[in-house]
Design a protein around this nucleic acid. Structure first.
Length: 1140
RNA sequence: GCCCAUGUGGCGGAAUUGGUAGACGCAGCAGACUCAAAAUCUGCCAUUCGCAAGGGUGUGAAGGUUCGAUUCCUUUCGUGGGCACCA
């Protein structure tokens, strides 16, 4: 019987699916285990062999835990909002929703072939309204919360409002520092109050700088900007202030730091997060500014400056207040308003010029560039302790956003300050004596200061304390903890993301209510930016200006008018999310009549806006005009039957009850003349208006808000910050995740993903978890208990060398000057040509050598030399040898290609680089699954090396793993006899093989050392084959061990052994240590560290006995050459070393 | 510039965490079976000296600690990844 892996894998995948073996139940009796993969962005390129690495690792661990008796949650989904789909839409006009859907289908099909144990019923997609409804909901929780710094947790913003109403801001330090009393607060108007609250909300809006490209009319991400110009088109990019949304992650800086102590992340991962948060302790110090001329400072004072005793001063942040006597200059961020106040008349031109220069530079530039720039402002500050005058400079290396945006320069102790002083010839004060050599700064903290008055002789720790105490005493400074981390930008001027559930009304952000969610992303036809760099949604005038903030109320109930303009109404007509879902589907699947009527109603210019298939209560109206409470139904022929008539009647009755008028038309009527129907509808509306006017009937709909919608969308990390919670309770229509369910599944026990998310995603999801915890929605405040970082699988690129160079070619191949076909030269010959050229001193070839690694064209008077190193598809290269026939067919332009071969072969160049479509180095897992089977593929990916390590992909080795599986198969069947396994009692030696394997596999799986586990399986099968062991008792156990790694073949052979239940739930074998106990060991015996012989000794022997035995050994005596050993080291069960 | 990771045969990697470096696999070489091929099986396979027995050298480089270092420490070089010049 042959190992027909394709048939076997298909068979079991189908059976498993039919029997729903991967369905996971909540709240069962078993202990739980939650294994999570970082869900993929469904890119158009499909899955390549790099993706499944982590997925296979987590799948193995999940299946292992399941065999060990756990209830394992191991879900999968898609991070389906994002820029690539939008970019693709811009280029091709295809709607992101379409391409995303297609890509997800491809991904799923690919994943399924590999045989993962996902419960697809729990799939989530971040771009699905049923999902992002809750992303928006969580945003509203953040918007409606503030951080209470006393209790160190998030609380509802109403608490703060109540406190303001009762006691003003007595007990809160507002960032603005303007305090107010309760009376003042109550006297503020809505806008003033909201502005103050905005400064406290966890999700808040403020002006921030973005990369703005005027030519493209759009905002660009950092990585879309290269050298100050846009990556696409090379247009200039400047900074522009725009209103943006932010998350107040800085409030959680300390808790995010502390939380790291409670999770199992790698040290480097924790270190990266700590660096990102960047907590530093230091001091803020005020320096009085002494202006040189008598300019009056009238401009208002802002963050880095203040007025002390009537004098203008500047506040710096420093981590080294102890070096205050070494301050030789001061640098202020050029952006600061303060600069305008202090610049002297002399320096005005220079300063303005410099500021213009800085504005032209992107953040990326400022980082990449190493040259030192700056400009003197003309002003001086005064050192508060010794009265020394310190020149104030501006320079781009000081950032406005960090600390106070101003620093004190201590050149003898800080490398950057030193270079700055050196560059601008600022005299340097030495405060560390001969520890400063004048050539470079010495940032030591371990040297006593000199030249420093009252801190002379003290070192860092003591001096810092003394200085800060003095500063506080004088009231010109204070101890200050600073964080490098800034609040996280949360809005993007893009289309394909979650719309903000926010309406702007006279500059006040009004949040939508839960009932308004999901705020669905409207369909657009064009994906270009809106006016003034706003997102594409800003182009949808109808959508932005007609928010659906209506609440229906029960008839007879009075509308409550509250003092604010956004009153709430106690009772709503609620449509369930299911109804929304249903309506959405019906919208896609419309009748011809509905389509026709919509065509005339959608372009309605009378001011009444209609919606299609809108859910109201438990019904779905065909068309509705919310403002007029008018419902239009278009009925098909089946409305003539009695049952349907009855239903229509009760439905109309109910809708009437809650204040809607219903008018009906038949399909035929509509199709005959939709415009006539439109006219009739207009008449109706007119009647409604008249009636309402004469009777003063209040509309059943309360208008809660007016204004314009926020047109930004949320960033990619919004949906991924909480998806692990939705998997637990994916279909819940009333809450994002039932607390009972999240209490059961609790934290993710094992999270598998790449290091590229070390700070971004991991920090954000940790933040969201903490906030949801504070607000009582979940019971834990760290999302991921243990993190396993998977390495990147790099592509192994292959290159061909195309050269057109008549002189050389004719020398090598006769006269080729007339031949214009592309000529490809095998690697080593190509390289030799370069060397020969240099040896001969031919100038053109010197060029060739210097530019050869890259593609280039050189032209001079006599010749055109074209050299190209081109990526060639790795799939048409066998190892390094190019299949020249296939290559000629690869592209039309190569049809007539000529090759210069070495030993009859074309050898390609190679390089290891990132796997990507454009480098033609991607390998598709599907093809490997077809050729070798999923089990082989899974085991091979694991066999490549440790999961954590990055390594290049090489398809060649897969044969070895495939051979192993076939060898395993042959322990059960062989080609001639068929079944060969037997039900006999195993020998001790056979049991030993088994239990050695059980021990190794279990240990390796537990520590995620899957590559060594695979090799242990190989050793086991080799040993069993050598021992001709075909015994069921042994083989059966081996199969169970193998289930996590190669589930299909394990299940197949398990059934061949006569089992009828699935192996996926079999009982994991128990390791019996007694079978592996040894009584003796072959010790390596070395003399002075060099192994000279091996001697087998009983394990019970003690030092003295061992010494006696080994000294009698012939080989040892020979090597001792009659000398007496100085010392004999005997480590039981390890080795023996004789020192002479 | 700063931070993190990493360096072992022709290749991917292993090494009980300080104890026989190179498990397992790929590639290669030699052989068996076969008319032949595929499949399968058996040897050899870091390097160097040697017919062999056996010896020398070897974990990027240089030092150090130790009876003993791929493993720990110092310095240095190379490669890969990240970044917000963070005072």
């Amino acid at each position: 019987m042959e190992y027909k892996f394709n048939e076997i894998e298909k068979k079991w995948q189908d059976k498993w699916k039919a029997n729903k073996v991967y369905k996971v139940e909540n709240n069962v009796d078993k202990p739980k285990y939650y294994v999570l993969d970082m869900f993929p962005y469904p890119s158009g390129a499909g899955l390549h062999v790099g993706h499944p690495l982590g997925y296979i690792a987590s799948d193995i661990y999940s299946r292992y835990k399941r065999l060990k008796g756990y209830n394992v949650l191991h879900p999968m989904g898609f991070d389906s909002f994002g820029l690539p789909a939008e970019q693709y839409a811009l280029e091709t006009g295809q709607h992101p929703a379409e391409t995303t859907k297609k890509n997800i289908a491809t991904f799923k099909a690919q994943l399924d072939k590999i045989g993962f144990c996902y419960d697809w019923e729990r799939e989530v997609q971040t771009s699905d309204p049923n999902y992002y409804r809750w992303t928006q909901w969580i945003f509203l929780q953040l918007f409606n919360s503030y951080f209470d710094s006393k209790e160190n947790k998030a609380k509802p913003i109403e608490n703060l409002v109540r406190a303001f109403e009762l006691e003003g801001c007595a007990n809160c330090q507002l960032p603005t520092a303007n305090s107010f009393t309760a009376e003042e607060w109550n006297a503020y108007n809505k806008k003033e109050q909201e502005d103050i609250l905005m400064q406290r909300r966890l999700a808040f809006s403020k002006y921030g700088e973005v990369n703005w490209c005027e030519v493209l009319g759009t905002v660009l991400a950092n990585d879309e900007v290269v050298n100050g110009v846009s990556e696409r088109g090379g247009h200039p990019v400047v900074k522009k202030k725009m209103r943006q949304w932010y998350l107040r992650i800085t409030a959680y800086a300390d808790r995010l730091l502390e939380g790291l102590e409670t999770v199992e992340f790698s040290d480097s991962m924790k270190e990266m997060q700590r660096n990102w948060i960047g907590k530093s302790e230091g001091a803020e110090i005020d320096f009085v500014i002494k202006t040189i001329d008598n300019r009056q400072s009238t401009t208002e004072v802002q963050n880095s400056s203040s007025v002390v005793g009537g004098q203008l001063s500047i506040t710096v942040y420093t981590t080294r207040p102890d070096t205050i006597f070494g301050v030789d200059f001061m640098v202020v961020a050029p952006e600061l308003e303060l600069v305008q106040q202090i610049k002297t008349t002399d320096q005005t031109n220079a300063v303005d010029e410099y500021i213009a220069y800085v504005k032209s530079r992107s953040d990326v530039d400022r980082m990449a560039e190493k040259k030192i720039t700056g400009c003197f402002t003309g002003a001086y500050a005064v050192n508060p302790f010794n009265g020394k005058q310190i020149p104030i400079w501006i320079s781009e290396y000081v950032l406005a956003g960090y600390g106070t945006g101003a620093i004190m320069g201590v050149p003898c102790g800080d490398e950057r300050d030193f270079k700055f002083a050196q560059h601008f010839n600022i005299p340097i004060t030495n405060i560390i004596g001969n520890h400063f050599n004048g050539q470079e700064a010495n940032p030591t903290k371990e040297v006593p200061y000199s030249n420093s008055e009252f801190v002379n002789g003290m070192k860092y720790a003591e001096a810092a304390k003394v200085v800060i105490d003095k500063l506080e005493e004088k009231g010109i400074g204070k101890r200050k903890v600073n964080y490098r981390m800034r609040d996280a930008g949360f809005s993007r001027q893009r289309y394909w993301g979650e719309p903000f559930p926010i309406i702007w009304n006279d500059g006040v952000a009004v949040a939508l209510e839960e009932i308004d969610l999901p705020l669905e992303l409207p369909h657009v036809d064009k994906y270009g930016p809106g006016p003034e760099g706003e997102g594409p949604l800003a182009n949808l005038k109808e959508w932005t200006s007609s928010p659906s903030l209506f609440h229906t109320v029960e008839k007879g109930e009075t509308k409550t008018e509250s003092k604010g303009s956004f009153s709430q109404v106690p009772k709503y007509i609620v449509s369930s999310p299911m109804q929304y879902e249903l309506a959405k589907n019906m919208r896609k699947d419309y009748t011809e009549a509905e389509g026709a009527l919509w065509e005339v109603l959608r372009n309605n210019n009378t001011g009444e806006k209609f919606r299609r298939q809108h859910p109201i209560d438990s019904y779905i109206a065909d068309f509705i005009c919310l403002q007029k409470s008018l419902i239009v139904e278009v009925d098909g022929g089946y409305h003539l039957d009695a049952e349907q008539k009855q239903y229509d009647e009760t439905r109309s009755k109910r809708l009437n009850e809650i204040g809607f008028e219903v008018i009906r038309f038949t399909n035929d009527e509509v199709l005959k003349n939709p415009f006539a129907i439109k006219e009739k509808i207009k008449q109706h509306i007119k009647k409604i208006d008249e009636k309402a006017e004469s009777l003063h009937i209040p509309s059943p709909l309360v208008e809660r808000g007016q204004g314009v919608r926020e047109t930004s969308t949320m960033p990619g990390y919004a949906g991924s910050s909480w998806y692990f919670l939705r998997y637990m309770d994916p279909h819940n229509a009333t809450t994002f995740c039932d607390k009972k369910v999240s209490d059961y599944w609790n934290q993710v026990d094992l999270y598998v993903g790449g290091t590229e998310h070390a700070v971004g995603h991991l920090l954000y999801s940790r933040l969201w978890t903490k906030i949801l915890f504070d607000l009582g929605h979940i019971g834990f405040d760290e999302p991921f208990k243990k993190l396993l970082n998977q390495g990147m699988i790099q592509g192994s690129s292959r290159f061909v060398y195309r050269v057109s160079f008549p002189d050389i070619l004719s020398r090598m191949k006769g006269d080729l000057s007339a031949n214009h076909s592309p000529i490809f030269i095998s690697e080593s010959i190509y390289k030799r040509i370069l060397e020969i050229g240099v040896d001969n001193g031919i100038e053109r070839i010197k060029y060739l050598k210097t530019i050869a690694p890259n593609n280039s064209i050189i032209q001079n008077a006599s010749n055109t030399i074209v050299t190209s190193r081109l990526h060639v598809n790795v799939n048409i290269v066998d190892g390094f040898e190019l299949n020249t026939d296939v290559f000629k067919k690869w592209r039309d332009e190569y049809a007539n290609a000529e090759f210069i071969l070495e030993d009859g072969k074309y050898i390609c160049g190679s390089e290891t680089e990132k796997m990507s479509k454009s480098k033609y180095n991607t390998v598709n897992p599907d093809e490997l699954c077809v050729k070798y089977g999923a089990d082989t593929f899974r085991m091979y990916e694991m066999f490549l090396g440790p999961v954590e390590a990055s390594k290049p992909w090489d398809t060649k080795g897969i044969e070895g793993v495939h051979r192993f599986l076939r060898k395993l198969w042959r322990l059960f069947n062989d080609g001639i006899k068929g079944k060969i396994w037997v039900d006999e009692k195993p020998t001790e030696a056979e049991l030993k093989i088994l239990h050695r394997t059980i021990k190794k596999i279990e240990e390796d799986t537990e520590k995620f050392s899957f590559n060594t586990a695979v090799s242990a399986f190989m050793i086991c099968v080799n040993d069993l084959a050598d021992a001709k062991c075909y015994k069921k008792e042994i083989l059966e156990k081996v199969l169970i061990l193998l289930v996590p790694y190669a589930p299909h073949i394990a299940e197949e052979l398990w059934h061949q052994l006569g089992n009828t239940t699935t192996i996926l739930d079999a009982e994991y074998p128990t390791f019996d240590p007694s079978l592996l106990v040894e009584s003796s060991k072959e010790y390596p015996v070395s003399i002075n560290g060099k192994v000279r012989t091996n001697i087998t000794l009983a394990l019970t022997l003690e030092q003295v006995e061992v010494e006696e035995i080994i000294l009698q050994n012939e080989t040892i005596q020979k090597w001792l050459e009659g000398k007496t050993p100085k010392k004999i080291i005997y480590v039981k069960n390890k080795m023996i070393n004789i020192v002479v």
